[in-house]
Write a protein that binds this DNA or RNA. Structure first.
Lengths: 236, 236
DNA sequence: CCGATGGCTTGGTATAGACCAGAAGTTTGC
DNA sequence: GCAAACTTCTGGTCTATACCAAGCCATCGG
């Protein structure tokens, strides 16, 4: 318990959430209800909720309410398992929705892959779920020469499986970049959360074993959905 | 420009920050000044500032004001360079302050290294700076058998250098875990920021080439100070 | 010259109330 | 039966104001 009331509130809410969660109740009462119960205003209450949101304990679904966050998904960027594989490996249910497909240039992809600025890409945008919660949106930018009819045959299978199986590409060199972000309004909307929600931005540039550029991809994760884990052995 | 006023404010502030930054002015005007200039209240203004803070564009120093954030430090967790080395390699100035040293048990360290719960550790806590900005606090938990007189001889040099040079340890196996967090009041205070400021928690467990536990360490970074980058080559 | 003091500035916290827009549930009308 | 329309509930945004405590700085006193 610290001096500020909202920090005390945070602790009381933490306790309440624990209890609710034990009873399988994952939705919190309405803000107005909570504010009245703790004899404060919505503003102060929301400050306490925001603290717990920052910790990853709870999250909100836009205009629907606050919910207890499920356990984070463990993700190892040094391994090549596809989303579906590693979600299932953790006993959870993956799901993907394709939001759009088109072919056009994209500056960040061109830069990251060392191609000219006007290089067109096959672009696939999709939203991915874990246990029915939308946790990320991503944009894939594939070099058309490496996968000519991609947009015609892609539905929602594994992209890497397709690249390997149909076109024989071996993904060999990756550069990965991760930074915290505040979700832009468009990304937030596609994830059904408020604009400015904390997120994690992951970008990948992928080349094959002959250093030819294959694909660039950019993911926007909800910050509380992810735990990054890396296991390394071998002396440096 | 979106519908909500605070999002418009965000864009205007972004513009103002750009201009100020170009003139070398890295401190923003006072909240009351800005609120008046944009004809709104401090509450709404702070919502806009909070958005930019989430993006990592600006940060605040507790009760001192808002400042433009410097470029993120690039960090590759798969490489073994010490803090001082990779900060300098990016043309920036590292600095470290030791906050405390003691010997006592620590449950998370014991668990992560596979030791018994009451195993004591040499504990060093330090705050680290980049270009004069405090960007992280960390706790190191070293197995005493591997570095008996550590607390007597440690001042503020490189710990890994010491482990290698004095005791001949070769750090071979690492497991690294990164999750977003809201800084706890104690950590926030040591970093001179408000409690609940967004952070990144990085934990490392380190074993030597014979799988003997050496050290566990836990870092709390300001979220906007860091860009994680991993380069991988070699086919999977 | 220098340390102590006190006032001013700044962000941090909090109250009280209001309106809006989207989500969800309920009723109505075909 | 079922879709459309309405009502209610919910979070999202915003105003206006107040007080506190820490940082900062100029002034004062030795």
């Amino acid at each position: 318990m610290s001096d500020a009331y909202y920090l005390q509130l945070t602790e009381q809410l933490r306790y309440l959430i624990d209890q609710n969660n034990a009873q399988g109740e994952r939705k919190l009462p309405a803000e107005r209800t909570l504010a009245e119960r703790f004899a404060t205003t919505r503003v102060t209450l929301r400050q306490a909720l925001g603290q717990l949101e920052g910790e990853g304990l709870i999250h909100r679904s836009n205009r629907r309410g606050w919910f207890v966050s499920p356990a984070r998904l463990v993700y190892d960027p040094t391994r090549d398992a596809g989303f579906n594989d590693y979600v299932r490996a953790q006993g959870r249910q993956p799901y993907t929705v394709v939001l759009g497909m088109e072919t056009r240039p994209h500056l960040p992809a061109a830069r990251a892959l060392g191609l000219s600025d006007d290089q067109p890409f096959h672009h696939i945008r999709r939203r991915r779920y874990v246990d029915n919660r939308a946790v990320l949106v991503e944009s894939l930018w594939v070099v058309p020469e490496r996968a000519p009819e991609l947009l015609g045959i892609y539905t929602d299978q594994s992209l890497w499986g397709l690249l390997r199986g149909r076109w024989g590409h071996h993904l060999a060199n990756r550069s990965i970049r991760m930074v915290s972000e505040a979700l832009a309004p468009v990304d937030a909307e596609e994830l059904f959360v408020a604009p400015g929600t904390a997120g994690l931005n992951i970008c990948r540039a992928i080349l094959d074993d002959q250093q030819r550029p294959i694909e660039f991809d950019e993911e926007h994760w909800l910050h509380d959905a992810l735990c990054i884990s890396v296991e390394l052995s071998g002396q440096q």
